[in-house]
Design a protein around this nucleic acid. Sequence first.
DNA 1: GTGTCTAAG
DNA 2: TATTCTTAGACAC
Length: 415
Amino acid sequence: MYILVDCDNFFVSCERVFRPDLKNRPVVVLSSNDGCVIARSYEAKDLNIPMGVPFFQVKTFLQKHNGSWLSCNHELYSSMSSRVMNLIRSYFPKIEIYSIDEAFAHIADSENYLAIAQSLRQDILHQIGISVSIGIAPSKTLCKLAGSIAKKQSSGKIFALPDKNAAHPYLKNLDIEKIWGIGRNLNKKLNFMGIFTAEDLVKAPLPMIRSKFGISLERTIQELNGIPCLQMDELEHSKTILCSRSFESELTSYEQIRTIIAEFVDSGCRRLREQKALAGGIITFIATNRFRNEPQYDNSQLISLNAPSNNTAKFLSAMDKGLKQIFNPRFRYKRAGIILTDICAEDAPQTDLFQTSTQDTKEKALMQAFDELNEKLGKRTVYFGLQTPKQTSFIKHEFRSPCYTTRWAEIAKVK
DNA sequence: GTGTCTAAG
DNA sequence: TATTCTTAGACAC
């Protein structure tokens, strides 16, 4: 049996832990540049504020209803997420962290899983201050369904679909778009064939599904039938790392754009080292503003290293090389980023014939010292040549909360 | 192998 | 005036 633990309105819940005045009011959290609504409290959902709307479209409406809004503060959310994940980990030998606010685990059929779920939920609520919903079922897809039913319950927030028969009544009136793995496009195509509900879908002939829609949808159907097809994967490191951002305005200067992308390289390589991993290459990309009615341009360039590394300096010069090849001064750029590719574990790099020792020991010690200095003495104690001494931001976060849990200067105070 | 599409959160 | 960021898998070529 699988169990899915999913935090309720996670970003809003994190903010509310330190701002009790935000309770019982409509609250939204905004994306980068304060552009879109990416998280909503129940009160905001009740006002029919949709996920992903541009903030300017709902600002006045929200003001009228005594609402609040905050810029996103990922440093705070990641730190709260680690606390939640560590607590879940203390309950189960293996967990799969599926996203910042949810995790899967195995739970034995014979165990009193409802009591375990109950106790876990209480612990997370009392020790961390975050409310979670819990779904329990024989497959991950049914677990997601159980979890969404749990969320709709006014109390409890725990729901189990222990077998196919338990699930069946819920499939009858379930729109296929609500099923995990079925998005806008599949929904349209299936509707066109007369398939509207989950029940319609599980009745459809599998060979037809397989040939017309591929293996993913076939698995989804099996999963809805209580036959697990999706394994738990506990990835020790990600397969790619992407760092990108839209700017507050369009930029034209090569040096200015390079300085910003250097920050992405820095944070990407940091994440690489946190995961104890190496990358073999870096894709640099830039793009114009697709919402403007003017000639568009976007391009990317992959630069491969001779040997996998997590040394920021190496990726910075690779990035510079890539950017030179794609930068066209005729355009105004709105978005840029990097992708670290061919990632492998630090202790298992693929090496070429002539590369005997993989990661230079001196180099490794240097990066370690680098990380420790910035960790202990503050963010910009040491930095690389393509970066600037003070991080000047071209990204807007007007309503950002303090990093209560991760920075001494911003730590929560008891009044 | 590569890029593109789809999905998810 | 304003329109996110990140990861993964399948598939076509």
